[in-house]
Amino acid sequence: MANLLWLQGGACSGNTMSFLNAEEPSACDLVTDFGINVLWHPSLGVELGDNLQKLLRDCVSGAISLDIFVFEGTVVNAPNGTGEWNRFAGRPMKQWVNELAKAAQFVVAIGDCATWGGIPATAPNPSESQGLQFLKRDHGGFLGKSFVSRAGLPVINVPGCPAHPDWITQIVVAVATGRTSDITLDEFQRPRTFFQSFTQTGCTRNMHFAYKVSATEFGQRKGCLFYDLGCRGPMTHSPCNRILWNRVSSKTRAGMPCLGCTEPEFPFFDLAPGTVFKTQTVMGVPKDLPTGVDKKSYIALTGAAKNAAPEWAERDIFVV
């Protein structure tokens, strides 16, 4: 039996919705098949008021063993570092987070807001939001660079806006069943099992990427979304085209550019006008090239690919 506590800071509840839609395993499977005891969750918890405060205090004191502390949303520090804009159970949420993180065997940050600040931390960051152990790319965040939970691990970051349901439940199960040795983390503390490959891996438009045929409008059923419509699939680490959403699709499969939501900089360019759904270029060349490709190679590759492009690559290939 592993006790899990889920709290929510500066958030839209998107990751809670995602979690409740998980299928492999489902939220119910966590309880019935994997022996996870959900102490409290914003959408599932039954305790209120004094009872909830007592539960939280017992977790902090150790009267209740806290095995997994899951946090969704940013740590809100406003105004002026007090955290008063996000009060919970009688005090600023940031105080609970600080004490519960120290008491927990494992700390798991779910979603961009909890991992690196996400949309709430976008400049000028009026809520003074931080992720648990990062603020965008800067290591540190609310808990500090050196933080490790009682089991000796840093915060396990499961980013996404929202995180895919199965990323959440599979990581929780791995932690709860003592398989943390199977979880290796990358430089941003993301489990490599999910975040080693790119969003582009498995994209059905890869042939259009290869032959440099661009989608030029939304809804087109041909063309790659990277060249013109701002898709970040070639430089975003996620398995969105390997572990499909709702088991059937992904953003790029449906013709929607990847927004790069599993990367620390999300939302990119601070959502400045003209930067969303538009590939940013300098003199016609993309500012952000596919990871590992330099400008010179990119230009050479484009020329060769265009020359080699077969006729079918220019046609709508998704005809029903």
Binding site: K212, V213, G303, E314
Partner: peptide, 22 residues
């Protein structure tokens, strides 16, 4: 200087010889 031309442009459809920018 870089001899830019339609052939390498993202909007160019090689076989149709067509600029696909709407």
């Amino acid at each position: 200087g870089e001899q830019m031309r339609c052939q390498e442009c993202m909007y160019y459809l090689v076989h149709r010889k067509w600029c696909d920018l709407p």
